[in-house]
Design a protein around this nucleic acid. Structure first.
Lengths: 191, 191, 191, 191
DNA sequence: CATGAATGAGAATTCATTCAT
DNA sequence: CATGAATGAATTCTCATTCAT
């Protein structure tokens, strides 16, 4: 029974992800979500209190998944560069392997579709990276600038790759990933 | 008479910009746009054929404004670094001075609210920067990578500053702008 | 449950019929239809995909009802004159007993309010009459002319009676019906 | 100057006719009419007090044109059959030569697009035919039935030919016209 | 008279949400 | 819990008509 519940919840989140990332937040009406999840429209409200809650929940879910992936295999003992490299490649790998999720996250960053409060919550997940940067700054490796700047040059560009990839303009080969990491690393480190 | 026409058109574009950048594409119904522009709802359709056309027009208008600002004072004789620096600071200056416009552009990049065809049109405006990169690559200054990568590390991060600034989390001081440019420059150049 | 569904659908068709036949196709907005059917405006779209579909469905429904009435008691063994007489009186009886339906059909014949494809569909129902005419022609009773001509003089005039009756200018008594049939019969037969 | 006035009025009537007969009464907005007449939207209201007046005027104009054509060459001295034949062929000729007008009239007969009062006015034009029928009845040639019946079998069927012709289903050849007249004549006369 | 931008009521349609079954 | 018909407010867009120029 619990499984079934979980199944429906998951199916709804998944359907929402599909629709929003493929057709935009508008063009993702509850009726379509329900149909795609193979569930009745009314059932949604047994799992989510309203559409905002559904979207917020999806955002949190994916953000969590993403951060878990990002820190996969990472521990705080690792040398700074190795840690950064691991995290960076984890991130790009997740985004390439999960384009819908990546696209959804991008859409959420710049728009108002996710509640402000929820977006703030999600920031906390990033703490290990903040710590790592701080450690790197202590060691004189990472530039002594606001984490916002570090984020802007290490993490944020990844969204761009997803956006253009989605429009089939561009595909990031693994060689390009290497270059891209070098560029990120050059940006955030002291030469 | 021409003035009046231009006025209303401009007022409508401006109202759309206000609403979309402050409250998102949804929550920007035509009725609100009309009211904010101090115009009757039906009047919108004297200037734009439908909502998509209104949004597309706004996008093109702003993109054009942005690119004009970006290339202000630039000529192709300039040394590579000087040119890049000029363009980069032009861009950040425009975005800081015009947060609504900047925010609107960000929203458009990752979502489906602007027509694909219009977004493609807008790309052409970037040509001078592409040429400059190529020149820099020819001189062995700029990394020999896809312009997508160069864009991702030189231009794209600017959007992030706007996004967080909007949420009052962060303000990019002029010192930070200096650092930020150095980071961008490090990313795209051969050390 | 099925009853309720059918009820609402029927109520909507009936309301549409009322409004269109009494006030014309324009002056039959969806809101009025809904109100007359004692149903919410949005409910219409649970039963019909749009206004065109609603009108088309109504047309098919009535045309079907009309043709059923027309061929009531008819079988292909009947002598030609008897068959024609039966059908003709069935038709006039239906139209007199159902002036709204008759009027609606008239409105549809000459205007663009019903989809071309649907109007074509409806033609098939007339097949038995075409067969009967052919049989009559084979026997040298019915004029050897295009069925369009036969239709024009046997069936089409009935619409006129409905049109004028509706404006209270004229009522077709049963004696007149007799005369009218004789006129139709004279028109389509070889003297 | 008077010519110009007349020109614009005529152009507007003509544009209305075009649009209504080709695309139906709905799909004939004032703006389109104005554009097709090469006139400003506001100008319409210098010639007609509103849309209803425009349509009514068009109806009267065409009905008048039609009746003039119908009685072309007719005088009350003519023998009954000759008179009827002349009028009948005048009518069919007009309708075949002026399909838009014919179609417009058909649309008006069965719908509510023309004011009731105006439709009544138009009936008066038919007086000479009523007189002719009466004369024929006096002579024992024409059936002694209501003029409504005579109209239904002599005049009304012509509308049908126009309706089907418009849909390209059928074309009335001159041989068919002969047959059709014979059918009409058989219908309305005493054998 | 002519223009055509402006109006705003009203049209068709959508959609998040509710609730009886 | 699940259903899905029903709701009605909200949305986009149309259109007859007006009026300042």
């Amino acid at each position: 029974m619990t499984d079934k519940n979980t199944d429906k919840r998951t199916a709804l989140l998944s359907a929402t992800l599909d629709l929003v990332s493929n057709h935009g937040f508008h063009n993702a009406p509850m009726a379509k979500i329900a149909k795609l999840a193979d569930v009745s429209a009314g059932t949604i409200y047994n799992y989510f209190s309203n559409k905002q809650d559904l979207v917020d929940s999806l955002y949190l879910h994916i953000k969590n998944e993403f951060t878990n992936a990002a820190f996969q295999g990472y521990d705080e003992e690792k040398p700074v560069k190795e840690g950064i490299k691991l995290i960076w490649f984890n991130m790009i790998e997740y985004k390439m392997a999960n384009p819908k999720q990546a696209n959804f996250l991008s859409q959420c960053e710049d728009s108002q579709i996710v509640s402000a409060s929820v977006r703030e919550q999600a920031l906390e997940h990033l703490q290990p990276l903040l710590n790592l940067w701080e450690r790197g700054q202590g060691k004189g490796v990472i530039r002594d600038v606001s984490p916002y700047l570090l984020y802007a040059y290490m993490v944020y560009p990844l969204s761009f790759f997803v956006a253009v990839k989605k429009r089939d303009e561009f595909h990031l080969t693994s060689e390009m990933q290497q270059h891209s990491f070098e560029m990120a690393w050059s940006a955030i480190t002291i030469k």
